[in-house]
Design a protein around this nucleic acid. Structure first.
Length: 329
DNA sequence: AAGTCACTCAACCGCAGGACG
DNA sequence: GCGTCCTGCGGTTGAGTGACT
């Protein structure tokens, strides 16, 4: 038995709000304040669902909201936060005074995602698209160099976004690392090296790291927010980088279940962003691609995996208590 | 000028979790 | 412990609008 609707939807108005309706809400809130939104429509004389009133207030009418466009600093902060915690828009919005989760979400979906894709960054994983392509190839069994794409991926990564042109581009061309190197120089921090750099998107040419209080302060080894991928050596071009390797070397996973321990530095350099990123990656990997992490050679059960994440979570929080102030999770 | 397409963003929907009786 | 109500959240939709043909 499902929950009854919050209101009689057949008798409430839907759609855009009129100035008159806005004025009613503003007048009511000015006198009584916010709270108990289910009663507000009746008391304020509105033929609207309480939920709709609350949304109108929180997303548009609140006096502390900004209605101007996003600044470059705000955009940078959104990208950094998204890389760290994924699509937790309310948490990200709390970092941006005057912005709502809806604002942030819309801005991400309409502007920032495209901006990243233009730069050759997969907006879901925040990895260079070339790396995502390599991983997909391995997952889908098209690991050899000249394999053509035969099946489309099923996750929400750049390969399946509404931006089908990106997919078409990649399907029709074998993406060379040089292509991405040339198209997105910001990604690759070592242009002189012939080694393929896998450092995800990083505003390295910005002097102000807006997230110093979050990602950077959490790093025990670096002042930048750049992320060093685990098992980096396996990701050089021409080698058979495998998504499973990525999982197996994940610092979140139990060490004794990893067939190959990457090295203590990989764990000691672990940042908050890394952990979040990996957890998100794992979740996406398993949910979107139906990849069973147990099938990757690990022997832990699902519950022990969750326990492991929680343990690591506790460990991180004890080491970096400031996280509690930065993100609610 | 008219039609089509792409984009933006306000609003809706359904679910989850917390508070409370 | 259970049911109900309220609120918060993230994903999705669709009306409005401007750009393009």
């Amino acid at each position: 038995m499902g929950r009854p609707p919050c209101c009689d939807k057949s008798n409430v108005k839907k759609g855009l709000w009129t100035e008159e309706e806005d004025a009613k809400i503003l007048a009511y809130v000015a006198i009584h304040g916010v709270g108990n939104w289910s009663l507000i429509p009746k008391k304020a004389g509105l033929n609207r669902c309480g939920k709709s009133c609350r949304l109108r207030w929180t997303n548009y009418l609140r006096p502390d909201l900004k209605h101007d466009s996003f600044s470059p600093q705000e955009e940078e902060l959104i990208i950094q936060c998204h890389r760290a915690i994924g699509s937790r828009w309310s948490s990200i919005a709390r970092k941006l005074p005057g912005r709502t989760d809806n604002d942030v979400k819309n801005h991400w979906n309409t502007k920032l995602k495209k901006k990243l894709m233009k730069m050759g960054i997969d907006p879901v994983t925040h990895k260079p698209v070339s790396q995502v392509v390599l991983e997909f190839r391995n997952i889908s069994g098209h690991g050899h160099e000249n394999a053509s794409f035969k099946t489309e991926p099923s996750n929400n990564s750049i390969l399946t976004q509404s931006n089908s042109s990106a997919w078409e581009t990649m399907r029709n061309t074998t993406m060379s690392h040089e292509t991405y190197y040339n198209n997105s120089p910001m990604i690759f921090t070592n242009p002189a090296s012939s080694e393929f750099q896998t450092t995800p998107f990083h505003f390295s040419n910005h002097s102000n790291h807006l997230l110093n209080g979050t990602t950077s302060s959490c790093s025990s080894s670096s002042s930048s927010a750049s992320i060093t991928q685990p098992n980096q050596g396996a990701q050089t071009p021409g080698t058979n980088f495998c998504w499973n390797d990525y999982l197996l070397s994940d610092p979140v996973l139990p060490q004794n279940s990893q067939t190959q321990v990457v090295g203590s530095s990989a764990t000691s350099n672990l940042t908050f962003a890394q952990n979040e990123h990996h957890i998100n990656s794992l979740a996406e990997c398993s949910s979107h691609n139906n990849i069973d992490t147990n099938a990757s050679g690990t022997s832990h059960s699902a519950s022990s995996f969750v326990d492991e994440i929680l343990d690591k979570d506790q460990e991180m929080l004890s080491q970096f208590p400031q996280l509690l102030n930065d993100f609610d999770y």
